[in-house]
Write a protein that binds this DNA or RNA. Structure first.
Lengths: 153, 153
DNA sequence: GCCAATATTGGGATAGTTTACCAATTGAAC
DNA sequence: GTTCAATTGGTAAACTATCCCAATATTGGC
């Protein structure tokens, strides 16, 4: 696995911000001509450094006004319990993020919903129906101060 | 602001997963020909429903092995204090997400770092140097169980 | 420090994609 | 059932990605 040099990192920074740049524009910005720039991008894709290209959608435009962080403790933390939990939440589109945590909770989830009523529906019809959950604690976000997909390079 | 119909939502779902689909492929998948499909995508862009196109980068490939959630309380919560805090964290690339929260903390941040040492540097040279912070509590993620950018449509 | 081997770069040609225009079709209101 | 407005589909032109090959730069050995 070869290292990422300064130009690779610049390419990543730019594509994380705007993947619709043409190769010509990207090449100009990183100080290469189109061919080597193109080759570098393809290599970054093949090596899995660039994993995908996506459109980002405005949460308010979709009417998703509620963002909730949920702390979850499981009754048991055996590997099988963890895997079962991970499989379940992976299926649910409302769950955008889920982390296995250190400290006094097992999981931290970020969930979005249209309003409190549909969040309640999510809780009642999905999350609380899972076996092996010891406790659930919801924390509501008043506003999104910052949201970025761009990892520091 | 016209409503999003079923085809618009299908377009959004597909582009949130893969924005590199050609108009031909996208049109086939939603059951339109290229022209109307292209017109709909452009409208979604103009109306801000699609906000941008980005490449997603693999966190491990960049060597960013540490993900931390930070709970922060401010000494005061006047609008000016909140704005000052928001401006500061917005500048820092390590902070990927920041939410103003209800409950017993003011902010929840998601921060990434290469290792514990560089996280410590972030804390010491940036976060703890801010004025007006009453408390900071770090919660470490052991692993990312789910991470999605695709909002439910 | 020089040379050979290797990797990287740049330009040009081609295939593929986006985009704009216009006619045809569909749907809705009266 | 007819008219008007909105949406659709096809075609052509402009733009972009992609591949190939020659030229240039970099690295390692001596």
């Amino acid at each position: 696995m070869p290292e990422l040099d300064a130009i690779d990192r610049k390419i990543l920074a730019l594509l994380q911000t705007d993947s619709r740049l043409t190769m010509q524009e990207l090449a100009d910005k990183v100080g290469l001509s189109v061919s080597p720039c193109h080759r570098r991008v393809k290599l970054l894709e093949e090596r899995g450094v660039i994993s995908r290209y996506v459109a980002t959608v405005d949460q308010k435009a979709l009417g998703l006004h509620v963002s909730v962080f949920i702390s979850i403790k499981l009754a048991r933390q055996k590997e099988e319990d963890l895997n079962r939990f991970a499989r379940a939440i992976s299926k649910w589109d409302e769950v955008l993020e889920c982390y296995l945590m250190t400290g006094n909770r097992d999981y931290l989830l970020r969930v979005v919903a249209a309003d409190l009523a549909s969040y309640e529906t999510f809780l009642k019809t999905k999350l609380t129906r899972l076996d092996g959950i010891a406790s659930i604690e919801s924390s509501f976000a008043l506003s999104q101060v910052k949201y970025s997909i761009a990892l520091p390079v």
